[in-house]
Design a protein around this nucleic acid. Structure first.
Length: 495
RNA sequence: GGCGCGUUCGUCUAGCGGCCUAGGACACCUCCCUCUCAAGGAGGAGACCACGGGUUCGAAUCCCGUACGCGCUACCA
């Protein structure tokens, strides 16, 4: 099994899905997962991109056994370091007649294609150079000195093969293009390099995205011409956006694997999400048939994975579901672990994770977080005072003067609890409930209004964790200070 | 335009000829819990299995067309 990514500067989520498939089969059947860097396109090469690939996979916990970073029996694992062998095989194919040199200029090819499209003909090279020597070819137009080597496809018949994900695939040979195998700069195209490398590295299973399906007949032709046994070739479905188009780097940030980490998704959740797309893991706790287990890791994916169990249709990426999964994992995590993961996000936002109340505050938010990146925004109330409009202190349906008495009552309750030296959620709740009674707030809704006033005064927000827990974590000093400030704001309203 | 692939609730998916008046999950709605927000619990709505023909006693499941979607159509992968 092998993954063969190109180092183009970012790791596409679709590539990661393929890697997961590779790793799952390798694990299940005791195979070897090989990473090979396909850097034959010099124009697109980017420094550091290779490391990014390793980092992304490692982050998710996907393991590989051979690759440029860790060597192996078939090194080198970078195509740019394997150049001579491709050329030799290309020449061999020319000698044997299954490939030929082509001197057509890009301009001529371009015109040819336009004409074909206009005439509704299948788009393929017209074989102007086939069977000609260079001097013969020069007599015609559209000639360049720099030649490429093209694969000669059969004129008749069909190329068929079995894709384990899709079943039998069939292509009509006469409609297939004579693809370039060796570029004029001496570099191979993907179409030559994959075949040579996969054969030399003894690859048994090639897993790649669906976009490669149309290229497979050409690869099979090369295998045949070289009298090599082709591997099993499977094409995974594409990852789609909500509009059913393919995920594009430009429009959809989540095309980039790095985005998930930046957004505060956990590797466990992302892996779980992707695993759900390629394997069905039955819920063994549920006697009913067809009920899936929702939370699982790589071992379960590998155990239940089969190439045939991947649905062949494109998958729309559903970030809502990923959010839900992420929340599930966050809630199952120990507080210490959560603190460790949330730390970088807090620090980046300028919030001090050494603060004595950080852990207490985080505990209150743990079941409210979906993404780690949300932490700074929801936790900031524990770290600093935030401005809010005075009007927020007056709940709907409450007269400003009543809000005034609620706040005054709260201040004296808090002062009393603070003086007692026992500042806790429990020691706050009882006197606050007494306060409600003394203010003649007897219904649940009325009590809610009182708590609402105190909540805004204490935090500047209308939605927070449970009030008394929040107040307990914030501490008496902070609460008294904030309530006093709220009192000033209320006076400003004339209450 | 040519070729190829795909099509079960909005999304992911179970289903591989009778167990399907199609099951689960996310999202959505309602209720419970409740000081707000969540979380959790209980319900609900949501798919004539893209459409049309076959095959069969019987089809979401097999075959053939059509439509739509997507991919490829580069000296990029």
């Amino acid at each position: 099994m092998r993954l063969a990514p190109s180092p183009t500067g970012f790791v596409h989520i679709g590539n990661v899905l393929v890697a997961l498939v590779d790793a799952a089969i390798a694990r299940k059947y005791g195979g070897t997962f090989v990473i090979r860097i396909e850097d034959t396109d010099q124009k697109r090469f980017l420094e550091g991109a290779e490391q990014l690939i390793y980092d992304s996979l490692a982050w998710l916990g996907i393991e590989w056994q051979e690759g440029p970073d860790r060597g192996g029996p078939f090194a080198p694992y970078k195509q740019s370091e394997r150049l001579p062998r491709y050329r030799a095989f290309a020449e061999q194919l020319v000698d044997e007649g299954t490939a030929y040199r082509c001197w057509c200029s890009p301009e001529r090819l371009d015109e040819m294609r336009k004409a074909q499209q206009a005439d509704k003909l299948p788009p393929k090279y017209d074989r102007m150079c086939l069977g000609k020597s260079e001097t013969e070819r020069q007599a015609f137009g559209g000639y360049t000195e720099r030649s490429v080597i093209r694969l000669r496809m059969p004129d008749h018949g069909h190329t068929t093969f079995v894709d384990p994900i899709r079943g039998e695939m069939s292509f009509e040979n006469a409609l297939l293009d004579d693809r370039v195998l060796l570029k004029s700069d001496g570099f191979p195209t993907y179409n030559l390099a994959v075949v040579v490398d996969d054969h030399e590295m003894k690859i048994t299973h090639v897993i790649r995205g669906e976009e490669w399906l149309p290229s497979t007949p050409a690869h099979l032709r090369v295998y045949e011409a070289l009298a090599w046994k082709p591997p099993v070739i499977a094409h995974t479905p594409l990852l789609l956006n909500a509009d059913r188009g393919k995920i594009s780097k430009r429009k959809h940030p989540w095309a980039n694997m790095g985005w998930f980490q930046e957004e505060g998704f956990l590797a466990e959740a992302v892996l779980n999400y992707l695993g759900n797309l390629i394997a069905f893991i039955p819920d063994t706790d549920n006697p009913q048939q067809g009920v899936a287990r929702e939370l699982f890791g790589f071992p379960e994916i590998a155990e239940h994975f089969e190439l045939g169990s991947i649905g062949p249709s494109g998958k729309v990426v559903d970030l809502d579901r990923l959010d839900w999964l992420n929340g599930q994992y966050i809630r199952r995590m120990s507080l210490g672990e959560l603190a460790r993961r949330v730390g970088p996000f807090m620090t980046a936002a300028g919030l001090d994770i050494e603060s004595p109340i950080f852990m207490g505050a985080l505990a209150l938010e743990q079941e409210r977080l979906k993404r780690l990146s949300e932490a700074p925004a929801v936790l900031s109330i524990f770290f600093k005072e935030e401005e809010y409009p005075a009007q927020m202190l007056v709940p709907k349906g409450v007269a400003p003067n009543d809000a005034r008495s609620m706040l005054d009552g709260a201040i004296s309750v808090c002062a009393g609890v603070a003086a007692s030296g026992n500042w806790s959620a429990a020691s706050l709740e009882a006197p606050f409930r007494d306060l409600a009674i003394s203010l003649d707030l007897t219904t649940g809704k009325q009590r809610g209004q009182l708590f609402g006033v105190v909540r805004v005064a204490s935090t500047g927000r209308t939605a927070t964790p449970p009030l008394f827990d929040t107040m307990a974590v914030l501490g008496a000093d902070t609460i008294l200070r904030r309530l006093a400030h709220a009192s000033v704001l209320l006076s400003g309203l004339g209450a």
